[in-house]
């Protein structure tokens, strides 16, 4: 500062007011939307996800066949005008089963991911903010969970709880908790060093309120991105458990279960496996593209 030992002549105290009473509170949202449209992967991903979502919601209502309707006369029939994706070994319409399967996969993905986000974020928040022994305890639990390969741990959990779609969902939620927990913890550790958190403490705010009004809103963006990416992982894991017979039970039209049910016909009637397989692939692709796109928009720092 090139100043005198006394301050320069004081200017009139009131701040020069700029005449721009226009409120620009929405500009951030606007900006976000524009960069969303610019990101190809986000738009394509969102498109795929939207289509799958629509299929899951209204698809089953438009079908001519029920997913469990058996046509004994046409078993393992090739795709035709009547059965678009052919029929499986029991004569069920593969198209109807794939469409109904979308419901199951999205359902499992949604609840498993929300479950792990809620539990993981809460644990991460506590570990990051309070630190000390609580941090050590929670972080070690995460480490233990991460020490097992995810799907192996899921198999163990389902084996304990008994095979069913609901238990598979719990298992997937549990194995994904550390992902969100560690992410949240690292965000909280960074955000709690910010001056505005100190300022909140200085005005006499209670810890719980600081956590939920100051730290959480400034930490959730990477969680949302990770949540979208993990949705894809959860769909695969659900299919994996279904394939192993630990997830959905017959006659539920779960994609992974459909693959395992018909794997002996892969050469004679490949349509029984190709279509559920493609369904899994597109769902995973859609959520991955959307997640990558969201990451670029919301959190440019995470880009590598």
């Amino acid at each position: 500062m090139s100043a005198n030992t006394t301050m320069p002549t004081p200017t009139p105290s009131p701040v020069p007011k700029k005449n721009e009473p226009k409120i620009e509170g929405t500009s951030r949202l606007h900006e976000g939307w524009r960069s969303f449209l610019k990101s190809k992967s986000a738009v394509i991903g969102a498109g795929i996800v939207l289509v799958i979502l629509l299929i899951a919601i209204i698809g089953p209502m438009l079908l001519t066949f029920g997913y469990n309707e058996v046509d004994a006369n046409s078993r393992l029939a090739a795709p035709s005008a009547e059965h678009w994706f052919g029929t499986d070994d029991l004569g069920r319409d593969v198209f109807a089963r794939v469409i109904n399967g979308a419901r199951i996969s999205l359902w499992v993905g949604f609840f498993a991911v929300s479950g792990s986000i809620v539990v993981g974020s809460l644990l991460g928040l506590l570990a990051g903010y309070y630190g000390r022994w609580l941090d050590v305890l929670i972080s070690r639990i995460f480490d233990i969970l991460l020490a097992f390969p995810g799907i192996l741990l899921a198999i163990a959990i389902v084996a304990m709880l008994g095979p069913s779609l609901k238990n598979a969902m719990y298992a997937i939620a549990i194995i994904n908790v550390p992902t969100f927990g560690r992410l949240m913890r690292s965000r909280v550790l960074a955000v709690k060093q910010e001056d505005f958190v100190l300022a909140a403490k200085a005005i006499g705010m209670k810890d719980r309120r600081i956590l939920f009004t100051h730290i959480l809103p400034n930490s959730w963006t990477p969680i949302m991105v990770q949540g979208t990416l993990n949705f894809a992982i959860a769909v695969i894991e659900a299919a994996g458990l279904g394939f192993l017979g630990l997830g959905a039970q017959p006659p539920e039209p779960e994609w992974g279960k459909m693959l395992s049910d018909c794997r002996q016909y892969i050469q004679s009637a490949p349509w029984t496996m190709i279509f559920p397989g493609l369904a899994i692939m597109f769902t995973v692709l859609g959520f991955n593209l959307l997640g990558d796109g969201l990451r670029d928009i919301l959190d440019p720092r995470m880009k590598q």
């Binding site: 910010e194 001056d195 505005f196 100190l198 300022a199 909140a200 009004t213 100051h214 809103p217 400034n218």
Partner: peptide
Amino acid sequence: FQDPFASLNPR
């Protein structure tokens, strides 16, 4: 606080 940018919650 010193830093007027960091001492207000951006959200």
